[in-house]
Simulated assay, not measured.
Amino acid sequence: MSDVTTRALRLLALLQSKSVWTGPELALEMGVTTRTVRRDVDRLRELGYPVLTSAGHGGGYQLGAGRALPPLLLSSSEATAVAVGLRLAAASGVEGLDEEALRALAALDRILPAPVRAEVGAISEATGVISRPAAEIRSEVLMRLASAVRDGVRVRVDYERADGDRAERRLEPYRVLSVEGRWYLFAWDLGREDWRTFRLDRMHAVHASTFTFTPRPTPDIEASVRESITVGGYPTTATVRILAPIEEVAPQVPARSGTVTADGSDACILRAGAHEMHWLAMQLALIGAPVEVIDPPELLTAIEELGAWSAGAHRAPGALSDPPTAD
Rank of each mutant, 00 (worst) to 15 (best):
A162W: 05
E160G: 06
G152D: 01
D158L: 07
Y174V: 13
V149Y: 02
R154C: 13
R144N: 09
Y159F: 07
G164M: 03
G164I: 01
E160D: 02
R161L: 00
Y174F: 15
V149C: 05
Y174C: 11
G164S: 00
R170Q: 12
A148F: 05
R166A: 15
P173W: 09
V153G: 06
A162Q: 09
R156W: 01
G152Q: 12
A162P: 03
R169P: 12
S147T: 14
G164T: 06
G164E: 06
V157Y: 03
Y174R: 12
A146W: 00
Y174H: 13
A167W: 04
R154M: 14
D158A: 08
G152T: 05
S147H: 09
G164F: 02
D158H: 11
R169S: 12
S147F: 01
R144E: 15
A146N: 13
R166Q: 15
S147C: 02
D165V: 10
Y174N: 11
Y159W: 11
D163Y: 02
R144P: 00
R169I: 11
R150N: 08
L145P: 08
R150E: 06
R166S: 14
D165Y: 08
D158W: 09
P173F: 07
R166I: 03
V157D: 04
D163F: 01
V153D: 04
E172K: 12
V153K: 04
R154H: 07
L171Y: 07
Y174G: 14
E168F: 12
R170P: 00
L171M: 14
E160K: 07
S147L: 10
P173S: 12
A146P: 00
A148P: 04
R161S: 15
E168V: 14
V153Y: 02
D151R: 15
E160Q: 09
A167H: 13
R154E: 15
D151H: 13
Y159I: 05
G164N: 06
R150L: 05
E172M: 11
V153L: 02
L171V: 09
R161D: 07
R156V: 08
R169N: 13
V153N: 05
V157F: 03
V157H: 02
E168R: 15
R156A: 11
R156S: 09
R169F: 08
Y174I: 14
D151E: 15
L145G: 05
E160W: 00
V153F: 01
Y159G: 07
E172N: 10
L171R: 09
G152N: 08
V153S: 02
A148R: 02
G152P: 02
V149T: 07
A148D: 05
A146H: 06
D163W: 04
D165I: 05
